[in-house]
Nucleic acid binder design. Structure first.
Length: 466
RNA sequence: GGCGACAUAGCCAAGUGGUAAGGCAGAGGACUGCAAAUCCUUUAUUCCCCGGUUCAAAUCCGGGUGUCGCCUCCA
C-alpha cells in the first residue's frame, strides 16, 4: 500500500511517491552542538528515525542526512565561557549527542555533516545564488534578496508585506529589506572565520542545510523534516536559497513535528522547566522516553511530565513481560504439529500486523501502531501457553518482534543473574516443595527488596527486574 | 495585525460522516499455598459550548469559549 504523509507545503496528506522509484532521500535538521540536547530536540530525532525505519521496512533504500551545526553564536559563547576552542565544544557535544541518541534507540544517519567540514561547498552555493542575482554583498556580509525571490513565504503561507509588519530589524544591519537574511557573515573580532570571495567570515545559519542537502542527496530531495518552529524562517529560507541556486524544487515533502510543552507551557530555561535527555536518563531508561514520544501523533503538541513517563514505564513493562513470557515458553516448548485451531490463530495474529501497517501508512500514526502491538500482545497472552507447539510460539514471537522492531521498542535482552541470587531461588524452590511457605515467602520478599521479582509459572520460576 | 495548532473517561491518547481503539490508574472475578504475571468483567448514551447541513456528526459548515505556538535564536 502507498504511504500517506502530511506535507506542510500543501497542508494536506499526500501519497508518498519518491522521485526515484524505490529510493528515498531525506534530510532532517540536526542539533547545534553547544550543550546536551533536550527533550524537545529528542522528538524529531525519534520521529524521523522511525520514519526512516519504516520506509526501509517497506522496502525503500533510504539515504538519510542529519547535520551538526558546529559554528554559531551559542557555540562561540560557550567556548569563551569555558576557555576552550569552538571545535572542542562541538566535538564534546557531538559525542554526547550520540550517547543520548543511542539510548533513545536512534540510529546514526548515513551522513552527519558538520558545517566546518563543508565551508567550500557552502561558499559555492552562496556564489551561485549571487551569480543568479538573488544575493547582494554589503561590506563583507552577503544577504539573500527576498524581494527577488517571488515565491518567498510559500511554505509558511506568509507574504513579504505581512512579514515585514512583524519584523525586527537589528541596528547596524545593512539589509535592503527587513526579511533579507545573511548567507555569509563578515568576521567579528575573536570569531572563527574562513576565507571567501567576500573576505574572512562564516556561513549564515540557514545556508548549511541547503549546501549539505545538495551535496549528499542532490538538488531535489524527497523529504525534509524538522520541528514546527523551523517552518519560519529556517525552512522558508532554505527553500529560497536552494531554489535560487539551482532553479529546481528543493524538497518534495515537508514534515514538521509538534512541540513538547511542560505543563502546557513552552519549555524554556527562564521558566525553569528545561529537561535535557541526559537528566532524564538518570531517572528512566530512555526507551521509556521513546515509547512516550510515539504514543501520540507526531504533529500533535504533547505535554511532558514525570507522571506521564511513569505511566509509560508501566506500559513498556507490559510489553517486556509478554516478550519474556514467549522466550520462557520457547525454552520448554513441545515439538508437535499445529491443530487447525492453532493455524487459525496465526491468521488472527496477522490481522494486528495489517492494522499496524495501515496505521503507519497513514501519516506515521505511531499511536495507532502501538495500539496494534498491544492488541497483538493481548491475543498472544490469551492464546499461547505452555501447551502451545514450538512453531506457533516462534511465529508469535517473530511477529511481535518484527512490529516492535520497526518502532525499535522492546529491544533489550534479558540479563543474567548472579550466582548468589540463583542460589536463593533454588533454595526457595526447595522450600516450596516442602511447603515451607514462610521461608519461601521470606526469600521472595528479600529478593523483591533487591529489585528481583519472582513469578511461579507452570513451567517453573521466572524472574524479572523491578 | 498575519500564519497555525489543540480541546475525547481519573490521567495519557487514537478515531475525522455510520453509531466511542489502545495504554496507565481504580474496582470486582478467575488462576495461585499466598503472590506476581495473565485473562475476563467493569469505568465516556457521549467526544469544550451554541447553532446549521445530513437518514446519520466526536467527525462537515458557521459562530463562540479556553489553551498553546510561530512571525526574534529555538525542535
Amino acid at each position: 500500500m502507498i504511504m500517506k504523509l502530511y506535507n506542510t507545503m500543501t497542508r494536506r496528506k499526500e501519497e508518498f511517491v519518491p522521485l526515484v522509484p524505490g529510493e528515498v532521500k531525506m534530510y532532517s535538521c540536526g542539533p547545534t552542538v553547544y550543550n546536551y540536547f533536550h527533550i524537545g530536540n529528542a522528538r524529531p530525532f525519534i520521529i524521523f528515525d522511525i520514519l526512516r525505519n519504516y520506509l526501509e521496512y517497506k522496502g525503500y533504500k533510504v539515504t538519510f542526512v542529519q547535520n551538526f551545526t558546529d559554528v554559531d553564536d551559542k557555540i562561540i559563547k560557550r567556548a569563551k565561557e569555558e576557555g576552550i576552542t569552538e571545535k572542542e565544544v562541538a566535538d564534546k557535544y557531538i559525542e554526547e549527542y550520540f550517547k543520548d541518541a543511542e539510548g533513545l534507540g536512534i540510529r546514526r544517519a548515513d551522513y552527519h555533516p558538520r558545517v566546518t567540514e563543508l565551508i567550500s561547498d557552502i561558499i559555492n552555493v552562496v556564489k551561485k545564488i549571487q551569480d543568479n542575482g538573488f544575493a547582494y554583498e554589503v561590506d563583507g556580509d552577503v544577504y539573500f534578496d527576498t524581494t527577488k525571490y517571488r515565491e518567498y513565504g510559500k511554505l509558511s503561507k506568509q507574504n513579504l508585506e505581512e512579514l515585514e509588519a512583524g519584523a525586527r530589524v537589528e541596528v547596524g544591519e545593512h539589509k535592503k529589506h527587513p526579511m533579507d537574511f545573511a548567507l555569509w557573515k563578515k568576521q567579528k573580532p575573536g570569531e572563527p572565520a574562513w576565507e571567501s570571495p567576500w573576505g574572512m567570515g562564516r556561513p549564515g545559519w540557514h545556508i548549511e542545510c541547503s549546501a549539505m542537502s545538495m551535496k549528499y542527496l542532490g538538488e531535489t530531495i524527497d523529504i525534509h523534516s524538522g520541528g514546527q518552529d523551523l517552518i519560519f524562517p529556517h525552512h522558508e529560507n532554505e527553500i529560497a536559497q536552494s531554489e535560487a541556486a539551482t532553479g529546481k524544487p528543493f524538497a518534495r515533502y515537508w514534515m514538521h513535528n509538534g512541540f513538547i510543552n511542560i505543563n502546557n507551557e513552552k519549555m524554556s530555561k527562564s521558566l525553569g522547566n528545561f529537561f535535557t535527555v541526559r537528566d532524564i536518563s538518570k531517572m528512566y531508561d530512555l526507551e521509556v522516553v521513546r515509547l512516550f514520544m510515539i504514543s501520540s501523533h507526531y504533529r500533535s503538541p504533547i505535554n511532558f511530565s514525570k507522571d506521564l513517563l511513569d505511566s509509560t514505564k508501566n506500559s513498556l513493562e507490559r510489553l517486556y513481560i509478554a516478550k519474556n513470557n514467549l522466550l520462557h515458553l520457547l525454552e520448554n516448548a513441545k515439538d508437535r504439529d499445529e491443530t487447525e485451531e492453532e493455524k487459525a490463530l496465526r491468521e488472527k495474529l496477522m490481522t494486528h500486523k495489517d492494522k499496524f501497517i495501515e496505521a503507519m501508512d497513514d501519516d506515521l500514526n505511531t499511536a495507532d501502531a502501538v495500539s496494534a502491538i498491544f492488541d497483538l500482545v493481548r491475543d498472544i497472552n490469551s492464546n499461547i501457553n505452555e501447551n502451545s507447539p514450538k512453531t506457533l510460539i516462534q511465529f508469535a514471537y517473530d511477529l511481535y518482534m518484527e512490529l516492535a522492531g520497526v518502532l525499535r521498542i522492546v529491544t533489550k535482552k534479558e540479563e543474567s543473574l548472579d550466582d548468589e541470587i540463583e542460589k536463593l531461588i533454588e533454595e526457595r524452590q526447595k522450600a516450596r516443595k516442602e511447603k515451607n511457605w514462610a521461608l519461601a515467602d521470606k526469600i521472595r520478599d528479600d529478593l523483591k527488596s533487591r529489585g528481583i521479582i519472582l513469578e511461579d509459572t507452570p513451567q517453573g520460576v521466572k524472574w524479572r527486574r523491578a
